[in-house]
Design a protein around this nucleic acid. Structure first.
Length: 792
RNA sequence: GCCGGAGUGGUGAAACUGGCAGACGCGCGGGACUCAAAAUCCCGUGGAGUUAACGCUCCGUGUGGGUUCGAUUCCCACCUCCGGCACCA
C-alpha cells in the first residue's frame, strides 16, 4: 500500500504543470472560450486564507470548465500601486518598488504552492511601465474626448494619508483607508467624466442578471438617478444682487442660476403651492450677497459659516438655519416666501437650494416646526384627511391636489407632469434628471502611482504628452517625507521639460493617478498582456471578453465594478471593444473570520495558508475551504474542519489504492446494464453524483454541496467494497484482486474514475496522482468531465 | 429612517420547482482492533412520550396568523441579527 504524502504530491504535480505549461492558452476560434477571473491582488506581503478562498473558488471553476472542453483563460496579476507601499517607505525608507516586488514574489509562491491553475505567462503588475503606459494612453484618449478634465474644486483631503480622496472613498466623512476625518481643500484636480455615462451605467444594470441582486442595488443607489424639475423663484428685491453672474456651475449640475432669482431642484413640483419658504445651502453664493446687503454682514457670515462647518454633524445637532431677511416669489402661487439658510441643504447636489414644503416633506416639516414656519396642505388624501394644525408628520405620499388654484383635484403624479410642462412653457422651470454620482477625481499627490501624462506650458497651458513618448516613467526618488505635496515635484530634472507644442519651458504634471484607474481595465490587458502598441489587441479582447466568471470581495461592489463598467464603455467608444458590460457573472465571496473577526495582521488572527500546507497539503486546505460553506457566505475558520477534509482525502486515497490494481490498466469492459442489485445501486449513485456535482459547480456555485455529494459517493463505495471484498479497504488490501466478475470491475471503475475526475478541481494534486495510478495516460489535462445517463 | 439579505440540532450547514426536515462534515456517545494509545473501521446522535422488542405517537425550521391535501419553501403582521445607503429635496 502506498502512503499518502500530500507535500510530495504537491511538489511533483506543480512542477509538472509548470513544465508542461498546462494552463497557458491561446486564442482558438474553433473552441468555446471561458474567461475565469478572480479580482487581482494588492501585494500586501502575505496572503491569508481569507484571500486565498477567492482564488480557490475561481480555480475550481477554471479547472471544471477546462474538463468541460472550454478554452479557459485564467490569469492573475497584481494591483501593485498604492498607499501602503508608500507609507511603508515613509516609515522604513524602503523604496516602494522594492517592497512591492518582494511581496509579489512571496505571494506568487503562496498561490503556486496552492496549485491554483493560473496562466502565469500572462501575469501583470500595474506598477511596471509596460502596464501603466496604457493607463496614460487611456488617459490621453479620455482627454481627447473631453472625458478627462481639470477643475479647481473643493476636494476631500485626508490629513493622515496626505492625499485627495474620491467621494467614493469617503465614508461617514472619514477616510476609507485610515479612518481620519476628511477636510475640505481647494485644489486643481483631474476628473474623469463618469457622469456622462450615468444613464447608460444605470440602464446596463438591468442586463446583469447573473450578478448578485445586492450589488446591482448598491450600484443603482450609488448612481442615484432622480427625476424632477428646476424651478426659479424670483427675488422680491433683486437689487441686492444685481450685476452678479452665475451662482452655480459645479459638477453634477447643469443648472444655471442668475442672481435675480433662486433656482431650486425638486422632485415634487406638484407640491409647490405648499412651498412656504426657500432654503439655501450655507455655501450658496447668494448667501454672501445677502450678507453684504444685511445690516451686520460680519455676523451674517459668521452664522452661515457655522452651519457650513457643522455640515457633517447635522444628524447630531438637528436641523438648524436662519432667516436671511430676503424674500422670493413663489412662481405658481405668486406669494412671497422667506429665504432661509439651512445646515442640512447640500451644496453638492441639485442647485444647492430647495423649496421648503413642510406639509409633504419630512425634513421640511421638522424644520418648519422648529422655527414656527407655516404649513399648508396641498396634497390631500382621500382615506384620512390631513389638517395642517394636527398633523404629526409630513404626508409624502399620494393624493390629490388642494389649495393649488387650477390644479386642484389632479392626482399628484399627473399634477407633477402637468406643472413641469407649465413651468417650462412659462420659462420658470424645466424638467431635469439629477444623479448622486459625481465625476471621478483621480489626482493624487503621491509618488507610487501612474504619472499623469501632461505638461504645463506657460504659453499653451495643459499639453498632452505625445503618444510616442509614453510611458512617462516614474522617476527614482530616495526620500519619502509624507509631507503632502506631490513627491514628484522634488525631482527637477524630471519636472522641467520642454513643451511638445512650442519647445518652450514647461513643467510636468506632478500628480499621479488614483490606483482605481489601474484596476478599471486590467481584465482587458490579460487578453493581450505583452502588447507594446496599444492596451490590447481588439481581436484578442473580442475572443476572450467579456469575463464569464468574476469573483472577489463585496467591498468592491461599488467602486471597482462601477469604474470598470465605465472604462469598458469608454474603450468601446474609442473603438477597442464592441460590448458594454465587462463581467457577465459575478460572485462576491464571503470573508473568512477567525475568532469572530476579520483576519488582519494587526489583530494577529491570520491563518497563513503555508502553515496549513505543511501539515495537510494543498488539497486538504482547498477542499476544506470549499466545503465549509457556500462561497458567498462568511465563514469561521476551524482547524477541526480542515482535519475532517484531510480525513476524507485519506479515505479516498485508501479506497483508490485498494482498487487501482484490480480495475486499473487498459482493456476494462465498459460499465454495462447486466448488473446485480448492488452494482445497479452503485451505478445509480455514480450517475446521480455526476449530475449533482456538475450542476452544483457550474450553475449554482454551491461548491460545499458538490463536495458533500462526493463524500456520499465515497461512503457508497466503501459499503459496496464491503459487500464485494468482505471488509473495509484498509483491512483487506491483501484481498485486492479477489473480484472476478467483469461487471463489478466495470461498475467500480466507472465510479472511481468519476470520483477522481470530479474531485480534481478541488484536490488536483491527489487527483492527478490517482488518475495516473489508475492507469490513465496523459494526465488530467487530457481527461474530460464525466457525463451522466438519466436512465441509470 | 430607507434598501437588501438572513434566522433550521451541541456545531458548520443541506433540503434545486410547495412533497419523507436536518444530507454531508465537525463534535459527542458506544463498539471493534490494540498490552495500551494513536490512527482506522462499524453503530448511534433534534426533543418529548410509549413499547419486552421490531417499532409507534406527538412536537419541532425566529414569533403570531393565513393559503394549501401538504409550507423551511408562498402570503400578511411582527421580532432579532448582518450588510449597504443615509437629510440627495
Amino acid at each position: 500500500m502506498a502512503d499518502y504524502k500530500p507535500q510530495e504530491l504537491d511538489k511533483k504535480w506543480q512542477a509538472h504543470w509548470t513544465s508542461s505549461k498546462a494552463f497557458e492558452v491561446d486564442v482558438d476560434a474553433s473552441r468555446p472560450k471561458y474567461y475565469c477571473l478572480e479580482m487581482f491582488a494588492y501585494p500586501s506581503g502575505h496572503a491569508h486564507v481569507g484571500h486565498v478562498r477567492n482564488y480557490i473558488i475561481g480555480d475550481v471553476m477554471a479547472r471544471t470548465k477546462r474538463m468541460r472542453g472550454y478554452n479557459v483563460l485564467h490569469p492573475f496579476g497584481w494591483d501593485a500601486f498604492g498607499l501602503p507601499a508608500e507609507n511603508a517607505a515613509i516609515k522604513t525608507g524602503t523604496h516602494p518598488e522594492t517592497s512591492t516586488l518582494d511581496n509579489i514574489a512571496h505571494m506568487k509562491g503562496q498561490l503556486q504552492r496552492l496549485g491554483i491553475s493560473y496562466a502565469w505567462d500572462r501575469e501583470i503588475a500595474t506598477c511596471l511601465p509596460d502596464y501603466y503606459k496604457f493607463n496614460q494612453w487611456i488617459f490621453l484618449k479620455m482627454l481627447e474626448r473631453g472625458l478627462a478634465y481639470r477643475k479647481r474644486s473643493t476636494v476631500n483631503w485626508c490629513p493622515v494619508d496626505n492625499t485627495v480622496l474620491a467621494n467614493e472613498q469617503v465614508i461617514d466623512g472619514a477616510c476609507w483607508r485610515c479612518g481620519s476625518i476628511v477636510e475640505p481643500r481647494d485644489l486643481e484636480q483631474w476628473f474623469f467624466k463618469i457622469t456622462e455615462y450615468a444613464d447608460e451605467l444605470l440602464a446596463g444594470l438591468d442586463t446583469l442578471t447573473a450578478w448578485p441582486e445586492k450589488v446591482v442595488v448598491m450600484q443603482r443607489n450609488w448612481i442615484g438617478r432622480s427625476e424632477g424639475a428646476y424651478v426659479k423663484f424670483a427675488l422680491a428685491d433683486p437689487s441686492v444682487v444685481s450685476g452678479f453672474g452665475r451662482t452655480k456651475d459645479v459638477e453634477g449640475s447643469s443648472g444655471v442660476s442668475r442672481t435675480d432669482h433662486v433656482e431650486v431642484f425638486t422632485t415634487r413640483i406638484d407640491t409647490i403651492y405648499g412651498a412656504n419658504f426657500i432654503m439655501l445651502a450655507p455655501e450658496h453664493p447668494l448667501v454672501e450677497r445677502f450678507a453684504a446687503a444685511s445690516s451686520d454682514p460680519a455676523a451674517f457670515r459668521a452664522k452661515a459659516q457655522a452651519f457650513r462647518s457643522q455640515e457633517r454633524d447635522v444628524r447630531m445637532g438637528g436641523k438648524q438655519g436662519f432667516d436671511t431677511g430676503q424674500r422670493a416669489i413663489n412662481p405658481f402661487s405668486g406669494k412671497p416666501v422667506p429665504i432661509w439658510v439651512a445646515n442640512f441643504v447640500l451644496w453638492g447636489y441639485g442647485t444647492g437650494a430647495v423649496m421648503g414644503v413642510p406639509g409633504h416633506d419630512e425634513r421640511d416639516f421638522e424644520f418648519a416646526r422648529a422655527y414656527n414656519l407655516p404649513i399648508t396642505i396641498v396634497v390631500q388624501r382621500a382615506d384620512a384627511p390631513l389638517s395642517a394644525e394636527t398633523m404629526t408628520e409630513a404626508h409624502a405620499g399620494e393624493g390629490s391636489l388642494v389649495n393649488s388654484d387650477k390644479y386642484n383635484g389632479l392626482p399628484w403624479e399627473e399634477a407633477n407632469r402637468v406643472m413641469t410642462a407649465d413651468a417650462r412653457a412659462r420659462g420658470i422651470g424645466e424638467g431635469t434628471v439629477q444623479y448622486r454620482l459625481k465625476d471621478w477625481g483621480i489626482s493624487r499627490q503621491r509618488y507610487w502611482g501612474t504619472p499623469i501624462p501632461v505638461v504645463h506650458c506657460a504659453k499653451h497651458g495643459v499639453v498632452p504628452v505625445p503618444y510616442a513618448e509614453l510611458p512617462v516613467k516614474l522617476p527614482q526618488i530616495t526620500t519619502f517625507t509624507g509631507r503632502g505635496d506631490s513627491p514628484l515635484a522634488q525631482v527637477p530634472e524630471w519636472v522641467n521639460v520642454t513643451c511638445p507644442t512650442c519647445g518652450g519651458p514647461a513643467r510636468r504634471e506632478t500628480d499621479t493617478m488614483d490606483t482605481f484607474v489601474d484596476s478599471s481595465w486590467y481584465f482587458l490587458r490579460f487578453c493581450d498582456p505583452k502588447n507594446d502598441e496599444q492596451p490590447f489587441d481588439p481581436a484578442d479582447a473580442a475572443y476572450w471578453m467579456p469575463v464569464d466568471f468574476y469573483s472577489g470581495g463585496v467591498e468592491h461592489a461599488i467602486l471597482h465594478l462601477l469604474y470598470s463598467r465605465f472604462f469598458t464603455r469608454v474603450l468601446r467608444d474609442v473603438g477597442l471593444v464592441a460590448f458594454d458590460e465587462p463581467f457577465t457573472r459575478l460572485l462576491t465571496q464571503g470573508m473568512v473570520l477567525k475568532d469572530g473577526a476579520v483576519m488582519s495582521k494587526s489583530k494577529g488572527n491570520v491563518v497563513d495558508p503555508d502553515d496549513m500546507l505543511q501539515k495537510y497539503g494543498a488539497d486538504a486546505l482547498r477542499l476544506y475551504v470549499m466545503f465549509v460553506a457556500p462561497p458567498e457566505k462568511e465563514v469561521e475558520w476551524s482547524d477541526a474542519g480542515l482535519e475532517g477534509s484531510f480525513r476524507f482525502l485519506m479515505r479516498v486515497w485508501r479506497l483508490v489504492d485498494h482498487w487501482c490494481e484490480t480495475i486499473g490498466g487498459e482493456g476494462i469492459p465498459e460499465s454495462g446494464t447486466d448488473c446485480t442489485d448492488a452494482e445497479r445501486g452503485l451505478r445509480r449513485k455514480t450517475h446521480e453524483t455526476i449530475r449533482r456535482v456538475t450542476g452544483d459547480v457550474e450553475e449554482r456555485m454551491h461548491l460545499n454541496t458538490a463536495v458533500s455529494s462526493l463524500m456520499e459517493l465515497v461512503n457508497e463505495l466503501y459499503s459496496f467494497s464491503e459487500g464485494t471484498a468482505h471488509g473495509a479497504p484498509s483491512r483487506v488490501a491483501a484481498e485486492a484482486g479477489r473480484v472476478e466478475r467483469a461487471q463489478t470491475i466495470a461498475v467500480l471503475r466507472e465510479a472511481i474514475d468519476g470520483l477522481v475526475l470530479m474531485l480534481s478541481p478541488f484536490a488536483p494534486h491527489m487527483a492527478e496522482e490517482l488518475w495516473e495510478r489508475l492507469g490513465h495516460v496523459g494526465g488530467l489535462a487530457k481527461a474530460s468531465w464525466p457525463s451522466f445517463d438519466p436512465e441509470v
